[in-house]
């Protein structure tokens, strides 16, 4: 059985990638199971999806604990424990990472015996949550690495899964995905299937008796001094809205009312001021601003500018 796990961020199309690959396996005569695992259901949050494919019916279910192939669409997730990218990886596993860095660098960084293959990252990416076509590219690279899905069948699978989005989008995805498919030619067939664990020689589960504990400890209640003010939801932002005060007409009630997080304050002078500690970067304000005085720039660009001394707060207003 092939066991393949996709890791990405909400918005990057990992569920779609798993479906394209699942459909491609299915068209090649495999029994298939594909599923996303939703967590935070928020754009930019870590999510994963998985595909199992076998010539006989797939009885295994749930999260893949020992993957044959792990695909990472966004390399910032690798070091994030909550994303679980490294879970169950061993010398049998192949890791496909979409990255600017080399396989050697990742091998060294992760100190892993897994085989690492790089899907070269595009240079022109502004918003990580929207890495263009990354889902299709990942699915295509996987298909090539298994060596059991032909280029034509992959193209048919992608078309079937995306056709509801229109011909143009299918064509754009197909062009970029097939480039990724071809780029994997040195590694074709590197991903190997694995079987079921043996019942003769297995590691016994370390079962324990759960001890009784009083309600003071065992009630599922966490009391913490963390309020919505103290939680810095601004860290979630991938794009930063910036007010151009030269264009701002001072109709502060519009942006501050539309802001779903109450993260636009109004100064005594009647000018809006974005609270970047809590702005999640949804960009509703950018869309609503009547004089188009709010622009958006990638968060990493904003951070670089801040380091060189630019201030984005409303102090200057």
């Amino acid at each position: 059985m092939f066991r393949i796990r996709f890791h990405g961020r909400g918005g990057q199309g990992m569920k779609t990638a798993s479906r394209i690959l699942g459909t491609a396996f299915f068209m090649e005569g495999y029994e298939v199971q594909d599923a996303p695992r939703y967590g935070a259901e928020r754009r930019g949050a870590p999510i994963f999806a998985y595909v199992r494919a076998d010539k006989s019916p797939v009885n295994e279910r749930g999260v893949i604990s020992h993957p044959d192939l792990v695909v990472v669409s966004d390399d910032t997730l690798v070091g994030m424990p909550a994303a679980g990218v490294m879970q169950g990886i061993n010398q049998h596993t192949v890791m496909l990472i979409n990255s600017h860095e080399s396989a050697k660098t990742w091998q060294h960084r992760l100190n892993t015996r897994a085989t690492i293959i790089i899907l070269p990252a595009r240079e022109d990416v502004e918003d990580r949550a929207e890495l263009p076509y990354i889902g299709s590219s990942c699915a295509a690279a996987c298909a090539a690495l298994t060596n059991v899905i032909s280029r034509d069948v992959f193209a048919r699978a992608l078309t079937e899964e995306l056709e509801h989005l229109g011909d143009d989008i299918v064509k754009q995805n197909l062009d970029i995905a097939l480039t990724a498919f071809d780029a994997m030619s040195p590694h074709v067939g590197i991903v190997k299937q694995s079987g079921l664990p043996s019942a003769t020689d297995y590691k016994k589960p370390e079962w324990i008796e759960l001890p009784y504990e009083s309600a003071a400890i065992s009630a599922p209640a966490i009391h913490a001094g963390v309020t919505s003010v103290e939680v810095r939801t601004g860290l979630w932002r991938t794009m930063r809205p910036i007010i151009n005060y030269e264009k701002c007409s001072g109709c502060w009630w519009i942006c501050s009312t539309y802001c779903p997080d109450g993260a636009i304050n109004v100064s005594a002078e009647g000018l809006p001021d974005i609270d970047y500690e809590h702005c999640k970067g949804c960009l509703v304000c950018v869309a609503q601003c009547p004089p188009d005085a709010i622009e958006a720039i990638p968060e990493h660009v904003a951070k670089e500018q801040e380091m060189s001394g630019v201030s984005f707060s409303g102090d200057k207003a």
């Binding site: 370390e206 079962w207 324990i208 759960l210 966490i222 009391h223 913490a224 001094g225 963390v226």
Partner: peptide
């Protein structure tokens, strides 16, 4: 028997430690 492993309890203890630290903070 509840199917529950030592490792799961260890992970649970970590979560409880975080919760207690938060509580101590208040």
């Amino acid at each position: 028997r509840l199917l529950y492993t030592q490792n799961e309890l260890t992970e649970m203890r970590k979560l409880q430690a975080i919760a207690q630290a938060e509580h101590a903070d208040i």
